[in-house]
């Protein structure tokens, strides 16, 4: 199912400079994202997957090219505007969960909804990921899979336009990983977020509508899964 085009990326470059060294992390990437679509980004480490994800999420700024969100060029946003963009439109799911340890699962979700236009109630978001019973636990009291599901609930509660998942199952065993993927899939379908899933696990890529392969900062392959596999059928 493809909805409206949310992001359009043209000739995007990102160069990291350390002293006199230059690392070309992205060398001219073109990409379009649509709401309700799951895109998997595959590639070996250092290929630029995370860089592209950070640029899409407004955590970083490109050195060249265009990065438009609903027609507006994110490259021209200042820090404050980028923060506003992240707050209203982007949900992140990191490999290392990144929950705030001093807040309970519910409070973590509430914090992320602060400033969102029509957020899902924190309890409902946690219900979506199957954590209603444990929503008043602190991160240290949750298992890895539970923490990651709480992180997904936090990312989706604001009804983001863009859901970015960076190796969301990287630190989990396959059973917990599948649970997390199911949640991501459900959110993408039910909430209509454009979802980008960074992984180097080819099995996971099977649940995406589209699979893009990055090598050395360039998109080398784009293919469509027709039909894509359901998350619960994924295994590794």
């Amino acid at each position: 199912m493809r909805g409206e085009n949310t992001h359009s990326v043209r000739a995007l470059t990102r160069i990291y400079r350390t002293g006199s060294d230059e690392v070309h992390a992205l060398r001219g990437v073109d990409l379009d994202l649509c709401s309700g679509e799951i895109v998997a980004l595959l590639g070996p480490s250092g290929s630029g997957k995370s860089t592209l994800l950070n640029l899409l999420g407004g955590l970083d700024r490109p050195d060249g090219g265009e990065l438009r969100f609903r027609g507006k060029d994110l490259a021209r946003f200042d820090g404050r505007a980028l923060a506003r963009y992240r707050r209203r439109h982007v949900g992140f799911v990191f490999q290392s969960y990144n929950l705030i340890p001093s807040l309970t699962a519910r409070e973590n979700v509430e914090l992320a909804c602060d400033g969102a236009e029509r957020p899902i109630a924190a309890a409902d978001a946690l219900d979506l990921v199957g954590l209603r019973a444990r929503m008043d636990h602190f991160p240290a009291q949750l298992s890895g899979g539970e923490q990651q599901r709480a992180a997904v609930a936090r990312a989706i509660a604001k009804r983001p336009d863009l859901l970015l998942c960076d190796e969301p199952t990287g630190a989990l065993d396959s059973q917990a990983g599948v649970q997390v993927l199911e949640v991501i899939e459900r959110c993408s379908v039910e909430l209509g977020a454009a979802t980008v899933l960074v992984t180097h696990n080819g099995a996971i890529a099977a649940m995406a509508d589209r699979v893009l392969s990055l090598v050395d900062g360039k998109l080398v392959e784009a293919r469509r899964n027709a039909p894509r596999r359901k998350a619960r059928d994924v295994s590794w």
């Binding site: 999420g57 707050r87 982007v90 929950l99 992320a112």
Partner: peptide, 13 residues
């Protein structure tokens, strides 16, 4: 890290 998480959630500096 906590501050970075907040920033990723869209909290300004």
């Amino acid at each position: 890290r906590e501050f970075a998480i907040l920033a990723s959630l869209g909290f300004g500096a």
